[in-house]
Structure formats: structure tokens, C-alpha cells
Design a protein around this nucleic acid. Sequence first.
DNA 1: CTCGCAACTGTTATGAAATAACATCACAAC
DNA 2: GTTGTGATGTTATTTCATAACAGTTGCGAG
Lengths: 159, 159
Amino acid sequence: MSLRCDHSSDGAGLHGHALTRALDDAETRCGAEGQRMTAPRRRVLQLLLEADGPVKAYDLISGFGADGEAAKPPTVYRALEFLEKQGLAHRIESLNAYVACRLGADGHAAAFLICDCCGATREVEPAGADAFTGAAAASGYEVRSLTIEAHGLCAACRG
Amino acid sequence: MSLRCDHSSDGAGLHGHALTRALDDAETRCGAEGQRMTAPRRRVLQLLLEADGPVKAYDLISGFGADGEAAKPPTVYRALEFLEKQGLAHRIESLNAYVACRLGADGHAAAFLICDCCGATREVEPAGADAFTGAAAASGYEVRSLTIEAHGLCAACRG
DNA sequence: CTCGCAACTGTTATGAAATAACATCACAAC
DNA sequence: GTTGTGATGTTATTTCATAACAGTTGCGAG
């Protein structure tokens, strides 16, 4: 759970062009569903997209203002709630942290491979999720949402 | 996530004989591994075993003393950490709550079916986990531990 | 036995994460 | 324009968890 190495992190952060495009895409998607991508929501999504890995809520709060001024907690938590609902962001339960969605993002299930060494967190297709959901259904349980989070070592840190 | 119905809960709590036996079993298992089942650990495990469902840490804290006196947080958190390490208890990340292990408990992976209606939480074998771990391994990631938590509706609440 | 270490517990204090409650604002529908 | 809904701003509080250090206990080595 704690970082124990000096390996480089994700390198997944978006910047410049790619960032703007991702934000605009998200805005378009929201509009298509009658949802509003307002300023604080866009700002929080931007912070998540720029980040190399999972971001703590209070880091979003303190990084919120472009001038370094912090936001109030509800501002950020409400934005996160919205982004999660739109499938634009995910909460990593086992880290109390948040990431921008890096996959298709259309209501899909998510799964994460978290490196306990360097902190890199990769979003992957949830292989085996159908088997799990099916097994649950066979026992009468209806899966509405599924949290899958692996802790372990990424390829670089295993090296 | 919030309880919305008045369906009965798990009914999984242990009492009397069964409780004592479960506690003694746990103590035996600890002894066999050179671990000590001390008083606070046993007490926390007891509270978890008695409970019908997931228990919040601060409920354990306030229920700790038989006389109704509360424990200090570190007492309970340390006990929980120990119990988790021994596979005697699990943390439900998506609820910030804890449950006694209801399965074999020998270092196994765990998965949970959480009913968002009545709160019942069932520990199940993680069907599909091997597929997931295998897929991760194929991409160079080594899974050390796997958190699988489903939210949805149990059979009773779907009715 | 007794010394010394390692593990465990007790205690105080603080830090981190999230939400409640209520006031105000923006904007589209009518 | 007015009205209603959804979004934001703001203050305060609650909930969850750990840091840091002091004291105790059990146990094996000598």
C-alpha cells in the first residue's frame, strides 16, 4: 500500500492538446445526455486527466484553484460524484483516491491493477467479471456494480 | 449504498455455543502459526462474529467494553489489522466496514455480494478471479491481493 | 533465574476523508 | 417574467484512521 521504490510512475497524464481534446470530448458526451459539464466539474476532470495516477480528494481540493487557492470540500466531492455517474472518473476504494476513466467510459465495469511499489494504477477490462456476475445471479443476487481492485506489482517493479 | 428497505438482515451472527467454538477455532489456528490470540483481538473477533453484517470500526470501538465502555481507536484498528492478516476478518472497502471471515479462511481470496437494500453482505468464492489474475499476469502484472465487491440486490430484496 | 528483546497494549493527540445543512445562484420551460 | 430544478457556495461537523511514544508482558538465551 505504501510506496517503496523510486520507479517512475504511470506517465499517463494528459497535457496540452490531448488534454483539451479529452475535456471537450467529455463535455460533448455530457451534452448528448442532457448533462451539464460545468466549470468545477471540468476543472476536477482536468486535474484527474493531468495526473499520472490516482489522486486524493484533498489534493484535488488544494489544487483546484489555478492560483493555488483551495476549493471547499463539497465542491470537489460533488464534481467527483457527477463524474463517476457519467463514467468519466472512478473511485479507487482501496486507496481512497480517484482517477479519470481511461477506457471507453460508456457505463462499463472497471477494474484496476495497482502497483504497491510505484503506485502506478492501470485500468483494465474486468476479465472474469461475467463469470462472477453469472455465479452471483445463479444464487439469486443481482449485481448492479462491481468493484475489482488488484494490489500487487507492475511489470517494471517486478523486474 | 444506503438502506432503503425493512427486509431482515443476514441472520448470520453467531451466538452461544457456535460463537465460542468459532473463537476457540480461531485461537487454535493462531497458535498453530505462532500467533497470539490476545484479549482485545479475541474481543473484536467476537463482536464481528456476533454481528449480522458488516460492522463499522467505531461501532466496534464503542461496543468493545462489556460494560459499554468504549475502546481507544488504535486498540480496535490494531486488532482488525491482525485479524485481517490471519484471514479471520475482511475489510469491505466500499463500506468502510469489517466482517468476520465466513469461509475457509486459509489465505483465500474473498469476494462479497452486498445488498444495497437490506445491507446483507455475503462472502462468496471469487468466481472468475483466476481469469482476472491470469489476464493480469499475461500483461506482466503480479496480483498479490484482490478486492472484489459487488453492490446490488439480494434474492430477498429483489422479490 | 534474570536479562534482554520483541511483540503487544495503553494513551494522547492529530490527521485525513467525507457529508450535513442551508443559503444563493443560473438557466431553461412555461 | 416567473417559476422550478439543478448547481454552486459556505459553514460546520462527523466519520474514519494513524502517528508517536510510554509502559507492559511473554519468552527464549545465557
